Amino acid sequence: MKKLSPTIRDVAAAAGVSVATVSKYMNGAQRFSAPVEARLKAAIEELGYRSNPLARSMITGRSRTIGLTILDISNPHFTSVVKGANRVALRHDYTLLLVDTDENQARERPLIEALAQRVDGLIVSSRIPDDEAQWLLDLGKPLVLLRRSEALPIPSVGIDNRLATYMLARHLLNLGHRHIAYLGFGQARINDERIRGARECLEEAGLTLDVYDAHAPTARAGQDACSRMMLGPRRPQAVICYNDLIALGFMKEAMSLGIKVPHELSVTGVDNVPYGEYAAPALTTVDIQSEKMGELAMQKLIDALAGHAEAGHSVFEPRLIVRESTAARG
């Protein structure tokens, strides 16, 4: 005969309290005296009682679940964001529910709307333009964006993208490079900011920036763009890539074409993904503190759930990481 699972009434009887007291204790709705809480804890452990999350959410109106939408789980930047966010969620007894939109803008709205119905709040990474994203405000859930939005009154976190590429351009100029190109990803909202940073730095030196576009923010796209740039009429001496994945693919293809990195070509990226350090040569990049970005986004959301919402934007300062993929112009 199958053994019946213990019920909340069994716990109440064993602890000598009412069912309502057990419910309030399990849901964290009320604190009790130390002796009462000790009896409750002992009864729960002895009986092996586990509350029903669905029933609890129906009572409290909270699922203790937070949704996180990212653009591509295979991109180590987003993996680090998830890791940081999950660390803070667990600390506050929340479960993270993850959705990967797979760099498909058409999927973003239906996936986010479906996720919103199952969670208490949302952290959103999206490429949807601000003028098309007003529906986010109608979800009725606390939100935090993983980018800055001038038009939406939603808390957000991000980095100073203009400064990131300005620093890379300055580093390359200091190495003696004068013909510098930027390989971006035009669909990204932050791409224009990164172009602006590199362009401003070069203009201060009386130079111009050649701008190219990759078809995706991936290593394969960087690889595909390399021959077009390096075998064309304006071969650069150094390249600033939109992210590390594009840079790693570009660098691999450049070496396949017989171009020596960094002796004939310096290559840089943005993100400081973990395995950029182990490439050959190791990749010069900008650290954008992806894990800390996830941690702060989650803390902002938990604060909002507690009634302490703050609509401001928090900015992480980029940090230049110089490695072997850049060298002085020979």
Results as ranks from 00 to 15, higher is better:
W135N: 13
L139R: 12
G158M: 14
L183G: 04
L145N: 01
R148F: 11
K141G: 02
I180R: 07
T165D: 13
Q134S: 14
I159Q: 08
P155K: 08
Y182D: 07
L173W: 02
L136S: 08
A133L: 06
R178A: 12
S156L: 08
V157E: 01
M167C: 09
L143V: 03
L173G: 00
R178H: 14
N174I: 00
I154G: 06
R178Q: 15
H177S: 04
H179P: 00
G158V: 13
L136G: 08
R148Y: 14
G184M: 03
L175Y: 04
I159E: 11
P153R: 08
H171S: 11
T165G: 12
S156Y: 05
A164Y: 12
I190Q: 06
H177M: 05
R178I: 01
L152C: 03
T165Y: 09
S156H: 04
R148C: 02
A151W: 06
N161E: 14
H171I: 06
H177R: 05
Q134A: 15
I154D: 05
G140F: 11
P153T: 12
L168Y: 07
A181F: 07
G186W: 01
I154M: 04
A164F: 10
R147D: 02
Y166K: 12
E150F: 09
A133Q: 07
D160G: 02
V144Q: 08
R162Q: 14
L172Q: 09
Y182V: 04
I154N: 06
R148G: 14
M167T: 11
G184F: 03
L145M: 11
L173Q: 06
L168A: 07
L168E: 10
I190A: 08
L145R: 00
D131P: 01
E150P: 00
Y166C: 02
A151D: 13
L173V: 01
L183K: 03
F185I: 02
D160T: 03
R147A: 08
M167I: 03
L146M: 11
A164C: 14
R178G: 15
G184R: 09
P142Y: 05
D130I: 08
L139Y: 12
V144P: 10
H171K: 10
R178L: 06
A164N: 12
Y166W: 06
D160E: 09
L173A: 00
R189K: 02
M167Y: 04
P155I: 10
E132F: 02
P142C: 05
S156A: 15
A169L: 14
R147S: 10
Y182R: 05
R170E: 15
V144A: 10
D160K: 00
R147G: 03
Q134F: 10
L175K: 08
A169M: 15
R147T: 04
P153K: 09
L163G: 05
G158K: 12
K141M: 01
T165E: 12
A151Q: 15
A181Q: 03
D160M: 01
E150G: 11
L183S: 02
A188H: 13
I180N: 11
D138M: 12
L139Q: 12
Y182F: 15
I154V: 15
L172A: 11
V144F: 07
L168G: 09
R162K: 12
T165H: 08
L139M: 13
R162C: 10
I159C: 14
A151I: 10
G176T: 09
I159M: 14
L175D: 03
D138Y: 06
G176D: 04
A169H: 14
S156Q: 07
Y166F: 13
P153N: 10
Y166S: 11
L136T: 09
P142I: 04
P155C: 10
R162L: 11
